[in-house]
Design a protein around this nucleic acid. Structure first.
Lengths: 226, 226
DNA sequence: CACGGGATTATGGTATACCATAACATTAGA
DNA sequence: TCTAATGTTATGGTATACCATAATCCCGTG
């Protein structure tokens, strides 16, 4: 009978519809399937996600608190628009946190961590070669997630993820800026080289420089929106 | 007729039940009306808040994403317990962010900002004198909120607020540690003095020292819980 | 044709119903 | 008496109903 026990166990990891819908909608927003400011109409989401309004509303509450969705009183939810007054702050915070993570990653990264980051960077370059900017964004995210987790900073990664969620569109358009394919990947390469050399100070500096350049591009993009 | 126009406008700031309930429950958690790990049973909350389960569930989704409530699959929501593996990270992040804010506050604070911080510090001391640790916690929060906003760092304040929400109980017990009435207030005074002197480096250092001490106390408290 | 008013529809806010599973209480058997 | 099985209740997950307000459409008048 022992061979059959596992087959009888109820799957405790079975996710609720809410969890599934939350992941689906969050991913759709992060992959720019919606425009900033685009209305998220509950009944439409019910059809698209195949769940009831209860589930949709609860998912929207999650995403509002995560900052990906803004709830306008009397008007209903919409995909968050980057708040011009906060862009600089968000980049500043990312700079601080990413530089810290790079430094600690340089101190603690295992060969497996570095291999994973190298693969992610290769995916960044492959995305650029195919002009697939969504793939670039996803690979970039994976690069940094690996770096934060290798540094043992999962809380900071949560914070950065939340901050990034509020400027997703800006990040995507920045990534697609002419010349960024070369510069951006080179900057990430410099971060990875420093990490690989276990040089914390160089990793810190390379990361800060990368963010500084990203901010300049973001400010240019934000200005184009009037 | 112009004098009557305002009276005729529909109050656009009228809050939904959800917003009211969210604020009520968040405040109750932040004021330690619930213990860490305490179950938050939906139907009980409905009675206590006087709203339907729909509202309660949506409020709980907000608070889950804010980190104040943890949702246990198959078991329902409970007040978040400080995760031992994350306490050090949370204090580290607070240290970074608060030191940055102190530095910028020193550069930008107006006399009105400084007056407000002085009042908040006086409230901290009054709270200690009355052994009213909830008041101490509230006044401490006001002190730092003022500092962040004077520094023009509202995004960082949002981040710190969220981080603090995950360690509320720990913060409260740390505040009530013997000797903290003198040391804690003195450290905050040193921060305020540096800000008042517009000495950014001193403010940065004073803030980091304060957080370092708070972390040591927090680790002691966390160990007492096994 | 343009504008305003009224009617209709869409949408968000809230309450309630239903069901599956977890938790607790009770009963029966060893 | 203790343990296991069964029954009952509590609770979370999900769907649906109802209502108020916002948005849109249509018609009539100037």
């Amino acid at each position: 009978m022992d061979n059959n026990t596992e087959a009888l166990l109820v799957d405790r990891s079975a996710k609720t519809l809410r969890q599934l819908a939350l992941e689906k909608l969050r991913t759709a927003i992060l992959e720019l399937k919606f425009q900033p400011g685009e209305r998220l109409v509950e009944r439409s989401l019910c059809e698209r996600l195949g769940v009831s309004r209860s589930v949709v509303r609860e998912v929207l509450r999650h995403l509002e608190s995560e900052g990906l969705v803004e709830g306008i009183p009397g008007h209903g939810p919409a995909v968050a628009r980057p708040d011009p007054g906060k862009i600089t702050q968000i980049y500043e915070l990312r700079s601080i946190l990413e530089a810290m993570a790079a430094q600690y990653c340089a101190a603690q990264a295992t060969p497996a961590d570095i291999t994973r980051m190298r693969h992610a960077l290769a995916a960044v370059r492959a995305g650029y070669a195919a002009s697939d900017y969504a793939a670039v964004l996803a690979a970039t995210t994976l690069f940094y997630e690996t770096m934060f987790l290798a540094a043992g900073r999962d809380v900071a990664w949560d914070v950065v993820t939340s901050l990034n969620g509020r400027i997703t569109h800006l990040r995507a358009t920045t990534i697609a800026t002419p010349g960024r394919d070369k510069d951006g990947a080179a900057e990430m390469q410099a971060i990875l080289d420093a990490i690989e050399a276990h040089d914390g100070a160089a990793a810190h500096a390379a990361s800060a420089a990368h963010l500084h350049n990203a901010l300049q591009l973001a400010l240019v993009q934000a200005r184009k929106r009037g």
